[in-house]
Structure formats: C-alpha cells, structure tokens
Design a protein around this nucleic acid. Structure first.
Lengths: 341, 341
DNA sequence: CATTTTTTGATTTACGTACATCAAAATTGG
DNA sequence: CCAATTTTGATGTACGTAAATCAAAAAATG
C-alpha cells in the first residue's frame, strides 16, 4: 500500500496538522521540523493522492484558451476540439473558457492576456502572435504563477511552460524532401504558397523548406513566395496565374490554409501537366484531393492532440506535477493516400 | 455545480441508499423505483465522480500484459514502456504485471490467458498470436467480463474490446508508395525482408505493400520475400546474398525487425550503387542509418503510445466509461531524416 | 522569570461515493 | 388478515486529503 499522510506523520514523529502545513506550504512550521517531515516524505516515497486532494479541495481548473478570430478550417477544427474538451469538463474537473482576439494584432492579444491574468485562472493556452509585447505579457503571467502553454504557434524566448504544437522548421524540411524525392531527377520551378509571412509558423516552414531545397535539390528552383492570406479566393487567383505564366512549374508547396482555392486551380489548369503537390492541414478538401491524386502528400498537426496535451500540461503544472514528455510531443503527421485515418 | 447522489435522491424522491443500490446494481429495488431513479439520473445529467468512487472503493486496476518473449529491440522498447507505466502506477491506481510467453506458440498463449483469467484482473492486454484457439480464449475472457485489448498485433474476429496498434495493411501500402515515388521512373527489382510470414502483422504489411506495388508501380518487380526471422545475422546474410546475386535490385522494404543486419549489408555492398530503402521501427540503428542516408524512410509505431492507450482503454472499459476514439488511434509515424523526434 | 509570540498537536468537518447494518415500511402469499 | 418476504430508509463508517479551530507546548523576547 502506498503511504498516506498518517504514515509520514508517524514516521516524522509529528502530528497530521504539521504534515499538512508542510505539504501545503502553510506557515508556522520551524525549519527543523519541516526538514524532518520532508525527509519522511522522501524516505517513504510519499506521493499525494491527487484525486483525494482534488476531492477535498473541490478543485476545478479554470483554464482559458485565447485564439485568433481566423476564419479558416484549421481554427474551426481547433475550436471544435476545445469545445469537445469543454463537454468533458465535468469528468476532468476543468472549467474551460474560449476567448477570441483579432488575428495578427499583438496589442489586442496583450490586452486580453492582462484581462485574463486578472481572473487568476489555473492556466492559459494561447495561439501566440510573435511580438515582444506578447512575450512580455506572457512572462508577466508566468511570474504571477499562472501556467502558460503556447498552442500551434510558439513564442520562443518567453517563459511559457510548454509548447503544444509541431516543429514548423522540421515540417518545412520534411515537405522539401518529400517534394524533392517525389520529383526525382526532374528539374524545374517550385511554387510556395503561404498564408502570410507575418506569421511565425509560416515563416518557419518556409525557412526549413528553402534550406533543404537549396542544399539537397539544386535542380529545383524556388519562385518568390506567394501570399494567399489563407484565403481560398486569393490562393486560387495566385496559383492559376502562376501556372498560366510559367510553364516550368513542376511542384507546389502549400504551407498555409486556403487549400480549397489551390485545389480548384490545380483541377482547372493541370489536367494536361503533372504537378507534384505537398500541402498542410488535413481537411475534407485536402483529403479528397489526396485521394484523387491532385495532392501527393499532406502534412498535418492534430488539433485534438494539441488541445488535450495543452490541458494535461496546464493541469499538471498547476499541481506542480511532472508531465510525460514523450506523450506531449505533438507529432508531424504525414499522410499519403494510403494511411489516411 | 455538477449533481451528486444527494441531488438524484432528492429529485427521485427516494433515499440515498436506494440511489446507491441502483447505481451499483445491487438487488432489492422494485422496477418502478429503479426507473424513477434512472430518470432522475438522466434528467439531472448525473455522472458518477470516478475519482471519489475510486477513493471510496480503494480501487486499483490490476492489469496484465502478455508479451511474446522475443529478443528484438521493438519488444524491448515495449517492455520498457510498460515498466515506465508501472513506475507511474501509484498515481494511476494501476497494478500492472508483465508475463512473457514463448513467441509464435498459440497453445502457450492460450494457457497463459487461462491462468490470467483465473486471477480476475481488471483488464488484459496481449500481443496476439493469430490462431483460432487464441481467439476462443480471448472471447472467454470477454464473456467473463474482463476487458481485453490487443497490442501491436490484432486478433480480428475476436471479441477483444480494442486494438492498440497500427493498421499494418495501410503501413505496407504507405511503404510501397514511398518506395515507388522515391524511385520515380526507374525500373528494377524490389526486395522485401520480413521477419516471418507466420506473424499476422508481417503478413498484412506485405499484403498492403504488394497490392500497391502491383497496381501503381508496374515497373517495379517484387522478388520472393526473404524471411529474416527478425534476426540481424540472418538478415545480413540474406540481403548480402541477394545483392551479390542480383544486380537489378534498386529498392528494399524491410517490414520486420533485425534491421541491424540489413544496415550492415547495405554499407558493405551498396557503396557503389544507390538503393532506396524503407524500413520499419525507429531504433538507434535505423535512426543513424536514416541520418546517414542508408535508409530513406522509416515507418514506426510508438510503443509508448500503444501502452498508454491500452491502459487508458482498459481502465475506461473496466469502469464502463467511453473512450475518446481519436485519442486512442495509434498512428503510423513516417520519419524522414528531417522530422526525427 | 514572566510574558509574548511562534510552533505544534488534537480534533473536527468536508469532499462524493461505496458499502454495511438495522429498522421501518410496503408488498406478497396463503 | 396475518405472517413472511421484499423493498426502502436512516444512519454510520470509510477512502485520503484539505482546511479550520482551539488548546498546549515550546521558543523567543524583554
């Protein structure tokens, strides 16, 4: 049987109340006494029964998710996953709130972070916009003892406890190798379609992509990046235009959202020529395009895993517990038409 | 606040004891009364507080993992992950036991299943050997109300509650497409190195591989499957031999273990020629080979995820709770040198 | 040394559920 | 209608921890 507070009280030769004071960092314990108790805890290998403790405390974990108000399918999916987590909140003792802030607006995010901080939640998850002010605001939360997890897009250099998202540089590198290998010995031009170079994850994907392309596939030449603003209409226009003007294009890397427009452009224009295409985010549209051969590979991050991981980490941090690192690593999923879920 | 047993007692106009009898399916409740209580439970949306219930019951989940006594790095890894779970057992209220049975021996597995059944554990996870007797033994466990999860290798047609492992047919198909696409327009011979065709997962991988190869890559010709018995020495011998005798080999798919021998053979023989190689299982050896270019892609199943998923599912089934399907889907990881963890 | 302050002990209640016991009420059978 | 049986209620204890209260002991202060 695992030891209880009674066992450490007996082992340390103190009362239950003193053990409680030590465990919950309440004042009024002499240094030597505290040490006796801590020794007993270590010797007996005591670990607090979190379930019992939560029961006694009537603890719930108020968590706040701060998301950009972006109207693309990835953000919709993320939203849906958070709502799914809210539906489980009774069983998980969470009380999750979603707040939306204007996208790409650091000041709005900072203001929201400050509002949220005032509510003293057990934890905060945010899709970070990469700006110094945001970094500072996150650091203030951390200093106030509020666990913070970045979601989807990281905020390196800040004090955030954890990042629940994929390594976007690695994603870009992987896309480059897939595209390069799929194209074999062919030489030609490559189009990169991004959402916006103002977003950190898009910049990072491009960085990884360009670096592997330059180093390992010299026969492939990158055209200037097209910015589709994650909008299907814009993406359609840009890609259709590029394909019309440039007959040397043999590959496309779509690293943002708005793939619906890309796919439409491909179906219109590329009946005659064969293009190799790698895109991000598995949606109903990209899935269909992968199956019918319009797209050759899809890189994906599982929003459900990201949300569940963020919640697990925030709860663990709030309780000062360890997390299983391997479990919290968000993997880059690579889908070919054969391994679709 | 979520409703408690007191609330349903009040709502149903019965006593706490009666609610308890209904909730825990104890006898001595008239049909009409039971219905009143069940209505109240539904109306108030009551869900039992599992943490409190477990505390009251002093519940632990005795779980048994039955593994084949195979000496390869995947099984070692699996073993290590289970031991890691054992280390967490205090916090998770589990009491996990590992038993090993001779590999590829259905009768031994059946006997062990019967021994385990007699101990009435809360759940059983097993790496299934595919045989009718095993199926029957598993079905008996299920009939006795013991949750059963197959691990790594499934037992289709049995009543097992869940399979914690990858879709091996999809894995084989994915390997074929990667190999086929990487080889581009080249024509030549493909070697498949398996462990043993007696193992279901290997058979399935081969099935998926051969089917995509035949359908989509007619320029590539499969040589008869080599069975390396998951043994590095045998694998080395077989591959070295094949490469010596057949100059037309341009690709290799290694769908089992024993990759150490494969890698050695490749380094010895293939300095002059370029081979495209896809292998299974990420280990220290395959990882190094992927980085140095000896292997082009690695397909992997994460043993840690499989073990944690099996435990979550077994606990949930033991409590009659729902599982989050998406969370329990074991994904096929595809690693290129760029997205190694 | 007396007094104040700090530290410690003892004890109780609570969280939500499980489970046991005994008494009371309702239902059934003859 | 009475007795036997079944159903229901009332109540208490337990699980392991949190948190509060009050008294007692120890230490620090003058």
């Amino acid at each position: 049987m695992r030891p209880t507070v009674h066992d450490i009280a007996a082992a340390a030769g103190v009362s239950l109340a003193t053990v409680d004071r030590v465990l919950n960092q309440r004042p009024g314990v002499r240094h030597v006494t505290r040490e006796k108790v801590e020794t007993a805890i270590r010797d007996l290998g005591y670990v607090r029964d979190v379930a019992a403790a939560n029961l006694a405390k009537g603890r719930v974990y108020p968590l706040t998710f701060i998301l950009p108000a972006s109207d693309n399918s990835f953000m919709h999916g993320l939203n849906a996953e958070i709502r799914a987590a809210i539906a489980r909140s009774a069983a998980e003792r969470t009380d999750i709130r979603i707040v939306e802030v204007p996208a790409f607006d650091p000041q709005a995010l900072v203001r929201e972070l400050e509002t949220v901080a005032a509510e003293k939640p057990s934890g905060v998850a945010l899709v970070a916009t990469d700006a110094p002010d945001v970094r500072a605001a996150v650091d203030r939360l951390v200093h106030d003892g509020i666990p913070v997890v970045t979601l989807v897009s990281d905020l390196t250099g800040s004090l955030r406890h954890h990042y629940a998202g994929v390594d976007n540089i690695a994603a870009g590198r992987t896309a480059a190798r897939l595209l390069g290998r799929f194209l074999g010995s062919a030489a030609g031009e490559i189009v990169v379609l991004a959402g916006s170079m103002l977003v950190r994850d898009h910049r990072e994907r491009l960085e990884g992509f360009a670096s592997v392309m330059a180093q390992e596939f010299p026969a492939l030449h990158l055209l200037p990046v097209l910015e589709g603003r994650d909008d299907p209409e814009v993406a359609h226009m840009l890609i259709a235009d590029a394909l019309r003007k440039n007959g040397g294009i043999i590959g496309i890397y779509s690293l943002g959202a708005g793939n619906r427009g890309l796919i439409r452009a491909l179906k219109e224009k590329a009946a005659d020529r064969t293009l190799t295409v790698v895109a991000h985010e598995l949606t109903a549209h990209t899935r269909a395009a992968l199956i019918d051969g319009t797209i050759d590979a899809i890189l994906n991050q599982d929003a459900g895993h990201e949300v569940r991981s963020a919640i697990r980490v925030l709860k663990a941090k709030a309780d000062g517990l360890a997390v299983i690192d391997a479990q919290e690593r968000i993997r880059l999923d690579i889908f070919l038409k054969d391994n679709l879920p």
